[in-house]
Design a protein around this nucleic acid. Structure first.
Lengths: 299, 299
DNA sequence: GGGGATTACGAAGGACGTAAGAATA
DNA sequence: TATTCTTACGTCCTTCGTAATCCCC
């Protein structure tokens, strides 16, 4: 079912060496063992990684080469994950949307005034959550606090309003609207929107301008983004637009530009916690976050 | 040696359920099997993931929870890697520095004039390479073309000069130089520099301003970045500065800002290929890249 | 014949399930 | 006594190495 990383590692070595004998030596196994590892991997992936000839390895296939170079990253990530398990963990885990969301909030926390900064640094660990796990992350105890835009209607979850949130529209630089400073929000709402079916509707609504016109009137294009960079990639391709917090405006890659949304209704960041949260330190962090004045947030 | 993803998956399920019986049901194994999977994982990681009590699971440890939420991303990456093996591979693999470098070049390729764009789209696949694998990637046949700044002195590698390259200085927003538009390059060169020991010196030199003053005079801080975001993270923490291509200027996260380097010597992008590269399509892509006028690059 | 990969086969080890055990409540 | 996890133990399957095989140069 799941990939076997030993087999994956074996493939990266074989792809590099181009020779079963040398790769097997490097891995400290027999060539027959390596043969079988590669065969298992190939049958599991359902692809041919290497072209065999009677005189040995004829060639690494295109698929195999691409798999090797991508696999190297996975192996590296796996090793980092394993070593990160030794580091001490902060007691309060705060989730933010998107795998790459954590970085933004880590930065933000570091730029707070000293008392806030140090409290956050000692008690809080930021983690990015895939868009389709946003409400599961809280319920399954993955995180203690989930920071998103918009309140949750999920049972058992308490939402605390934090800071005001301005939204901007993201369009490809090749899009007709690119270059405009401002677009009426009603006009923007008629464009085809990027939509993640798996994301909680409570949360998705704000980013599809569900508060401007009924969601049923929105034109949607389904994608399955896990992180903001996936969203930006889709937008850059040109067929859809998206809405995001002002926060990401200065971080956009060159092929994406943003427009201000004129007349957009007000929106807020919310902190979500479990209703039965027993831990004092969690409520203290929540209080701290709520006490931060709007000017020190992302305005 | 390598992490076992079946065990990792089992842990994410157990951490979510907080109960061996339910988690085992969900995984379609017996509780005793699950017990042993978790024990193996714990002994391999060398940490305690769950506090056991006689009445069952007492609590998931902080380490265990953080491991679970991070592991979910690894599992997702692994599944994506496995499915990506079915997609057809472009014949020419072009490597760019840093795991996240590919995205920038994909965007860039998409914004070329139609003929160039379509040729690149059909023949080229961009992959990001960790900084410490830059010259290995070519030799081990991982990539056909490696795009970096600076020529290579490695034997067997042919470097083709492509486009002029402007460099900027990256500093934390809290850094004294932040806010300055321009800094004399000699002054910037005296700051403590981020340095990756594993990266090839040929390549690292440009980013440590080795062409401004001898590398021996540079103040270095060792880190092991794999991608531009690792670099940006170190810079944001405030103790070091870095140099990057102008290209990343518009992509910086809020806590990092950039200054122009006044008087920086000229630099170039280079395409590196194996000297014995037999494939016609590779040289054709190389020729295409070289033919792109400077204005259409990253100026 | 020699180099290179796969297949055959037997051995070792790992992973699994059933069932018993231990510790609460 | 019911619940929950761990341990004991037997079974089966996987993985490995040695050695034989196949195939071209």
């Amino acid at each position: 079912m799941e990939l076997n990383l030993t087999e994956v590692l074996s493939w990266t070595v074989l792809a590099r060496e181009g020779h079963y004998g040398r790769a097997a030596d490097e891995l400290h196994v027999s060539t027959s063992c390596l043969t079988k590892r590669i065969q298992r991997l190939e049958s599991q992936l359902g692809t041919v990684l290497v072209e065999r000839g009677p005189g040995g390895v004829l060639a690494i296939t295109g698929t195999g080469r691409l798999f090797a170079v991508r696999a190297e990253r996975l192996l590296d990530d796996a090793r980092r994950l394993a070593t990160s398990a030794h580091e001490p963990a902060a007691p309060v885990v705060v989730g933010v949307p998107g795998f790459d969301g954590a970085r933004v909030f880590e930065h933000w926390a570091r730029n707070q005034p000293p008392t806030v900064r140090e409290t956050l640094a000692t008690f809080v660990c930021w983690v990015g959550i895939a868009f389709d796990h946003l409400d599961l992350a809280l319920k399954s105890q993955r995180v203690d606090i989930m920071l998103t835009a918009g309140a949750s209607t999920q049972p058992g979850i308490r939402s605390t309003r934090l800071w005001p949130l301005d939204r901007i529209g993201l369009v490809a630089r090749s899009h007709p609207l690119s270059g405009r400073r401002t677009v009426p929000v009603e006009q923007f709402a008629t464009l085809p929107f990027l939509r993640s079916a798996a994301a909680p509707p409570d949360w998705m609504s704000l980013w599809c301008l569900g508060d401007v016109r009924p969601m049923s009137e929105a034109r949607m294009v389904e994608v399955a983004p896990r992180s903001m960079s996936d969203v930006l990639g889709s937008v850059a391709r040109g067929s859809v637009v998206a809405v995001s917090p002002t926060l990401v405006g200065p971080v956009l890659p060159p092929p994406v530009s943003y427009v201000r949304l004129e007349g957009a209704p007000p929106a807020w960041y919310f902190a979500h916690t479990r209703h039965d949260e027993p831990r004092r330190v969690v409520t203290e962090v929540l209080r701290l976050l709520a006490s931060i004045p709007a000017e020190q947030t992302f305005a």
